[in-house]
Amino acid sequence: MAIVAQTSKLGIYGRPALAWIVALVFFFPIFWLILTSFKTDADAVKPEFLFFFTPTLDNYLNMTENYDYWRFATNSVVTSVLATGVALFVGIPAAYAMAFNPARHTKDILMWMLSTKMLPAAAVLYPMTFLAKSLGIFDTHFAVILVLTLVNLPIVVWMLFTYFKEIPKDIIEAGQMDGVNTWGEIKEILIPLAWGGIASTALLCFIFCWNEAYWTVRLTTTEAATLSKLIEGNRAPEGLFFGRLSAVSAAAVGPIVVLGWFCQKQLVQGLTFGAVK
């Protein structure tokens, strides 16, 4: 049989072996980061301790002392959570309106929203700094939350829109016949039905907020500075602090990488605006 013959021994053992090798190569830098984080700063730059060394937890225990880690982490959590919350609060009604009450220009509006995402941030760097400073919100949580919300709103609306569109219109109309008002439609029918989609949108939005590295760096100095700013500020340790820098970096990305594992599938839909399912 031709089909049976095609699955050669190489196919049975070679494919998984190769896949594992590729996966380990890709994961290696992260592994290296974690490994280095358990080395002392001195050991980290010695060739004899590449893989074998006496592990230490000091780098993690001293994160507060060395980098004031928790302050930056708190800022990251506060701004990311609130920005995600605001984006959902504004995005859910918008996506609902577009999915179930489309007007003639709905498609254009969606396209236009997407196009704001394509505006290169650098182009409006100075005006944003200027506005933030003249409004007195430079280096405040408010400014960071506002910008993070705006940056992610198009993706949030788009993702929610693609999820909402999967809900049969009949169900919303049945609700209308059964006597719910607009608020009831959202609360009683839409949110319970699209709960999974809303959760993954929130998760993805949170990840994007957490990793954002342009505005959070440019619009903050100390008060509202996030983890991106912290790492960016310590970008050139000249080999002196590889151990401690690795530890704080691992602590900055760890929670997000784990969160990311849970929403790989939604990531595809979110990042391709529903064009790949």
Binding site: A19, A23, P29, I30, S228, L245, S246, V253, G260, W261
Partner: peptide
């Protein structure tokens, strides 16, 4: 499943950490 998880991980690294990690430690 594990291969997928290992492979996808780099995507969630924040850009600042990515750059610091590569240019310094690696």
């Amino acid at each position: 499943g594990i291969v997928r998880v290992l492979l996808i991980s780099p995507f969630f690294i924040m850009p600042a950490v990515n750059a610091v990690l590569w240019i310094n430690m690696i």
